[in-house]
Design a protein around this nucleic acid. Structure first.
Lengths: 338, 338
DNA sequence: TTGTAGGCGTTATCAA
DNA sequence: TTGATAACGCCTACAA
C-alpha cells in the first residue's frame, strides 16, 4: 500500500487499466491501440494523476530534449537571443538550460562537462577560445554544438554569425559621408572573432575612404564598460581628438557614455557616436544614439532551425555557417559636418 | 568489442580496474576505500575517459541537482536575477533551467509540467496567478517552490519580495518634498501584487502629505511599454497635467520616455520622473533618470540560500517570507520646485 | 494489437 | 571494505 505516496508510474497505470505495461508505453508514445484499452488507460492516467518521468525515458532513449545555452553573461543581446530560443525550442518540445561563465576558463569547462554528464542533446554557445577542447569532445560524442556571436577557428562546427566586418565598415562609411575625417574606434577583445572583425571593418572603411589609420584613436578595449570609460578619457586628452567614434559593443558604450557625461562631452555635438548592439534605450536618448543592430530574432531562428535539423539527424555531416547582415540604425548622435 | 563506441560506464571502469561495480560507485560518491583500489579506479577512469551519467543517478536518487527559473520574460531585472542565480547555484553544483511564459496561462502550466516531468528539484518563479494550481501540485509533490517579485496569495509557500509599498511611498514623498503637488502614477497590472502594492504606496504617500487622489493622473497600466506611451499622452492632454510621475516599471518607463521624446516633453524640465527598476542606462541620460532600485544581488542571495536550505531538508516546513527594501536613486529627472 | 522480459547506468542493501 | 544483486521507470524487441 505504500504505492499511494509514491509517484504513480507506468506500472500503476497498467495495473489500474488492467493492460500490460507495454501497452501503456505505446499509448504514451502515440501508437495506435484498441479503443477500449485506450479509454481505460486514459481513465487510469487521469485517476492516478500520472505524469511520465523524463529521466527514465532519457536513460533509455539517450535523449533529453534539452539544449544548453552557454554565454559569458546575460547582457541585453544574449538575453534577447535566450528569450527567442526558449520560445522556439519550447514549441519543439525542448527545454533550454542556461550556463554563463564570465569568460572564466574553468567555468566554461565545467559548464560543458555538466552538459555532457546531463546528456543534454545539443549546445548553442557564444564562441570562446577556452571552449575549444570541450566543444570538440562534445562533437566527438555526437552532440551538435553551434557557435554564435564569436567563432572558434579551425573547428568542424556549425556557426551562426553576423557580418561584423561589413557592419563596422558601413558604420564608418556613414560617418565619413557625414563629413567626419577623424574617426576613432573602441575595439572589443581582438582575440575574439567579433572584436577582430569589427576592427578590420573599421580599418577597411578608412582605407577605402583614403584615410590613414592612427593608432592614437584606436583604443584597444576588452568588452568591459571600464574600457569605454578609459577610451573617452584617452581620446579627449589627445591634441586632436576624434570627431566620431565607433564603439564595438553596447557594454563599452555604457562606459563611454558615462565618461562623456562626467566630462561634459556632449553626444552628437562634441562627439559623434555609433555603438554596436542596439540597446532598447538608445533611441530614447536625446540625441538618440546610433547603433549597429544585430538581428536577434533572425539569429535565434537560424540557431533553432539548425539545431533541430541536426538533432533530427536530417543534415549531412559537413558543418554549416550562416552569416547574417546587421542593420545600421542612424540617429542624432551622428552629427553632420557637411 | 562494440563497447568502444559506447560511452564508458561504471561497469567498464569496474572491469578495467578489476573491482566490483559497487566499489566504483562508492569511489565516485566519495566513500573511503582501499588505496590500491582507489588508484586502480582512478587510472581506469582516466584511461576510459569515463564521465558519470547524471540521468541514471537521478533516476535512482530522485534528485537532479537542477532548479527551474520561471519568469514572464528576460527583462533587465530578471536577467540580473538569473545571472546571479546561475553563479550561486553553480557553486553549489546546481544547474539552472530557464522558462519564460509571457504571462500566457498555457505556457505557465506547460512550464510547470515540464518541470515536474523532468524531476527538477525546485522552482524559483516570479509569481503569477495562473500558476497557483501547478505550484500547489509541485509543493504537494514535495518540491520546494519559491516566489519572488510577485506574490500568489493564500499559498503556503516561501517568498522573497521587496517592500514595494514602502518604496513607492518614499518615491512620492521625495517628489512632494521637491515641491511637487500634482503627482501622477503609471500603475502596473494591479492584479499582481507588485502592481497593487506600488499603487498603494503611492496613495499612502499622497494621503500622508494631505493631497487628494485624482484618478485622472492614475493611469492603469499593465506592465507593457505601450501603457507608458499611452499614459504620457493621456496626462499631457489633461487641463492640468501632473508635474511629476511615478512609473511602476522600467518597461513602461521605456514607453513613457519614447512618448516624451515624440511629444517634445522634456525630462525633468517639463515633467519630473521616477521609474521603478534602475535600468543600467538611466544614469547615463541627461538628465539622469531617477529610479527605485531593487537589490537584485540580495534577492538572488536570499532565493539561493532559501532554496538550498529547503533542498537540504534543513528547514521546518512553515513557509518563510523575506521582504527586502529598495533604494531610491535620486537623479536629475526630479526637478526641484521649491 | 498485446503481453513479456531484458536492459539503460546508477545507487543501495545485504552478506561476506 | 568489498562483491553481488535488486531496484529506479521506461522503452523495445520478440513472441503470442
Amino acid at each position: 500500500m505504500k504505492k499511494t505516496d509514491r509517484n504513480p508510474t507506468i506500472q500503476d497505470v497498467a495495473q489500474v487499466a488492467d493492460v500490460a505495461i507495454g501497452t501503456v508505453s505505446r499509448y504514451l508514445n502515440g501508437f495506435s491501440l484498441r479503443k477500449s484499452n485506450r479509454l481505460r488507460i486514459e481513465k487510469a492516467i487521469e485517476e492516478l494523476g500520472y505524469q511520465s518521468n523524463s529521466l527514465a525515458r532519457s536513460l533509455k532513449t539517450d535523449r533529453t530534449n534539452a539544449v544548453a545555452f552557454v554565454v559569458p553573461s546575460f547582457d541585453e543581446f544574449n538575453s534577447r537571443i535566450l528569450t527567442s530560443l526558449v520560445t522556439r525550442f519550447r514549441a519543439a518540445n525542448y527545454t533550454v538550460v542556461t550556463f554563463h561563465h564570465e569568460d572564466n576558463p574553468n567555468s566554461i569547462v565545467e559548464a560543458l562537462e555538466a552538459i555532457a554528464m546531463r546528456k543534454i542533446d545539443g549546445v548553442i554557445m557564444s564562441g570562446a577560445l577556452e571552449a575549444r577542447g570541450a566543444a570538440q569532445s562534445l562533437l566527438d560524442a555526437g552532440r551538435p554544438v553551434i557557435l554564435y556571436n564569436n567563432d572558434i577557428r579551425g573547428l568542424e562546427i556549425d556557426r551562426v554569425l553576423v557580418d561584423n566586418r561589413d557592419a563596422a565598415r558601413r558604420g564608418v562609411e556613414h560617418l565619413f559621408q557625414a563629413g567626419h575625417r577623424r574617426i576613432g574606434i573602441v575595439t572589443g577583445d581582438v582575440t575574439t572573432s567579433s572584436g577582430a572583425e569589427r576592427l578590420e571593418g573599421y580599418k577597411r572603411a578608412l582605407t577605402e575612404a583614403g584615410l590613414a589609420h592612427d593608432d592614437q584613436i584606436i583604443f584597444p578595449g576588452r568588452w568591459r564598460a571600464i574600457d569605454g570609460y578609459a577610451a573617452l578619457d584617452t581620446f579627449m586628452a589627445l591634441e586632436e581628438p576624434p570627431t566620431a567614434v565607433l564603439i564595438s559593443s553596447c557594454v563599452m558604450a555604457e562606459g563611454f557614455l558615462e565618461a562623456m557625461k562626467m566630462r561634459g562631452v556632449q553626444i552628437g555635438k562634441d562627439l559623434s557616436l555609433i555603438s554596436f548592439d542596439d540597446n532598447t534605450m538608445f533611441r530614447l536618448f536625446s540625441p538618440g544614439i546610433a547603433a549597429i543592430a544585430q538581428p536577434t530574432e533572425q539569429i535565434a531562428g537560424y540557431l533553432t532551425d539548425l539545431m533541430l535539423s541536426r538533432l533530427a539527424g536530417g543534415l549531412p555531416p559537413a558543418s554549416r555557417t550562416f552569416t547574417i547582415s546587421c542593420e545600421l540604425v542612424v540617429r542624432e548622435s551622428i552629427r553632420n559636418l557637411t
